[in-house]
Nucleic acid binder design. Structure first.
Lengths: 362, 362
DNA sequence: GCTTGTTGGGAAAGCGCATTCCCACTACGT
DNA sequence: ACGTAGTGGGAATGCGCTTTCCCAACAAGC
């Protein structure tokens, strides 16, 4: 018993498929009351479920929204995904998920797959990369996106535009003030702290990471501090852990070298919370304590990590809101309210949040 | 410029659409070498992307797999989602995401939406509920699933079967030995601990929670211990926090009441890690320390929470593997290897993992 | 040399639905 | 009373693709 079709419903109700279509799926023309009722009953008794594929084919629009993330299990992306999902739900659309690990080549594939499924819009949440080895892939990704937009697709990118994208029609960017906020964080920290700073960053060329590093350095400069050393590592917990080990070694060496003097206590800035947690774990594993032996700050304010102790200083980013905004930016709310329908999404704002992990103990 | 179609490609290559279809999308019949090459070039130059909707319509199979979770931002579901996504990727299918907050009514809606989109299979990751107020909704959910299966859909449920489902064809359950593992955890704890136990559970009727509670009680009984009191609360971090506050009050009261005697130190079992973390946070907020003033264990071994201190005793569940198994169970690997294709997924195994949070300090 | 397979390609019929025409019919207007 | 606008329904077309069926060409069998 295959799923029942519109035609079957129509036959059962004794009307034409056209009429059945008009009553069951929103059409401009509203058939008469009695007929509508008959059709609806027929549909009910058959357990009719419209075939979205066929509908999509017929009116070339699928009600699908594609979401691209690096890794759905990463709480950063999970939070954004929640926002996207929420908004999609309100717009009565469904989200199609693709995880790429951040590789532009796989992102291109994902875009193509979304295009094949005729997704109405695509939200790209993963950080862009400008590494030279990704140049070709990035170009292809940009080309794929261009084509998608030219064919009427809507694209929203979180953070940074895709490098090389040329189309503006239907192309939205949810700007995240990574640089400014990192600067603000640096300013706050510099005002409470006169020791050295060191940055644990992601691989060179990752925009999110680079922006935060740049902003932090600027903030330090403004505060009259020398630039911080930058450790490059993987943009995840394990990268943070590795860098943490390295720093722990230095701290211990410094300690024994300079005698007991805790004069040059280190303040560590990890470019995201997950890395900060990794680094903290490494320090702890090496017998160091935070904030006693070193202080540390992250970025993002991941919800799941808020119960972590010592509480992590960070920059709160409205992740869910970001996902929601991105989705809304791509939303052709057909016939909906026209208030701020198509304007670019207002830039999101974050907030420096100092907690125990950067408390300079006497 | 709308996306180019198969027909356009065929025309450019000077062949019939049928032939073009045969060469571009896997067909049993392989056209001649030269023709194939011509078609491929035409497709390339036009940037042809097959319309998956149309393909789906024509061969009634969409390459879509629907995933239902309570909340994608919850690390438990995020981990499962990663497994599902991974496996889907290997099978060259895409995942459609729906979050329901656990309400059977919304789950029913999600199933209907997946059915409308003609998803080949559905994975339900959220815990089932048997609460009386959900009875009707559960019945409708079961009916919807039955219909979906009868129409050829594949369903995999994580943990517990949907109550009331009658169809067996295409219906799979990934069994999670919640009860046994909770029992094993209780046994381990009881062997190291002679104080009282208390359980922080989810709302009555939530299978996952109830199974773990039951298992834990059984484990206690086997160890010759009296049953633990059960606190019912929300199945998330905030529920854990609330219960934690309650327990903190008791602990403090007990302390002042019985004098300084720490004789009856409490061992808390929260039915999942996130709740355990919430409870820990509450205890800490009330000035209590773990494991000094109370010990606590969770369940799931959420990756993101492993760096939490004191390290949380828990039961490791291979979440990603569970997602993968569920997906594989629904996978009609058309023409693939026939090894363990259709058999029910082997029951997953977990592992009691004792860490610092339950160390009985002298 | 003719039949019988066999191969490689095209024509055409859907898949399930939305939508554009078109037609019959009613309710007006003058 | 006749023409016109307006209404409510159906027939038919097409969305882009797969697949069955058919046909031509060519190989091999007697």
């Amino acid at each position: 018993m295959a799923a029942s079709t519109l035609t079957e419903v129509a036959r059962l109700a004794g009307v034409s498929p056209a009429t059945a279509s008009r009553v069951l799926n929103g059409s401009a023309r509203k058939p008469g009351k009695d007929i509508a009722e008959r059709v609806r009953q027929a549909a009910d008794s058959l357990g009719y479920i419209p075939n979205a594929q066929a509908q999509g084919l017929a009116k070339s629009s699928s009600g699908l929204i594609g979401l691209i993330v690096h890794d759905i299990a990463d709480p950063y992306f999970a939070a954004i995904a929640r926002g996207v999902q929420d908004e999609a739900r309100e717009q009565r659309r469904m989200v199609l998920l693709a995880t790429t690990g951040g590789a532009p080549a796989e992102e291109r594939e994902a875009v193509a797959a979304f295009a094949a499924r005729r997704a109405d819009s695509i939200v790209i949440a993963g950080s862009r990369s400008s590494r030279t080895e990704d140049r070709d892939d990035n170009a292809e990704l940009a080309a794929e996106l261009d084509r998608y937009c030219r064919n009427g697709g809507q694209v929203a990118v979180v953070g940074h535009p895709v490098v090389g994208a040329t189309v503006t029609e239907g192309y939205h960017v949810v700007a995240v003030p990574n640089q400014e906020l990192a600067g603000a964080l640096a300013a706050e920290l510099a005002s409470r702290w006169d020791g050295d700073f060191v940055i644990i960053g992601g691989p060179d060329g990752l925009f999110t990471s680079d922006d935060r590093i740049r902003g932090f350095q600027e903030g330090l400069a403004t505060a009259g501090r020398p630039p911080a050393e930058v450790l490059r590592t993987a943009f995840n917990r394990s990268g943070g852990y590795d860098a943490g080990l390295e720093l722990a070694a230095r701290i211990k060496a410094g300690r024994s070298g300079d005698g007991e003097a805790s004069a040059r206590k280190l303040c560590i800035f990890a470019v995201n919370d997950v890395m900060a947690i990794g680094a903290s774990a490494a320090l702890r594993a090496e017998g160091l304590r935070i904030p006693r032996d070193a202080t540390i700050a992250g970025f993002d304010d991941i919800e799941t990590l808020r119960d972590f102790r010592p509480a992590l200083s960070t920059v709160r980013l409205p992740l869910e809101e970001i996902g929601r905004l991105a989705t809304r930016a791509t939303g052709r709310t057909a016939g909906g309210s026209e208030d701020l329908d198509d304007g670019e999404p207002g830039p999101v704002s974050g907030e420096v949040t100092l907690r125990r992990s950067t408390e300079a103990v006497a």
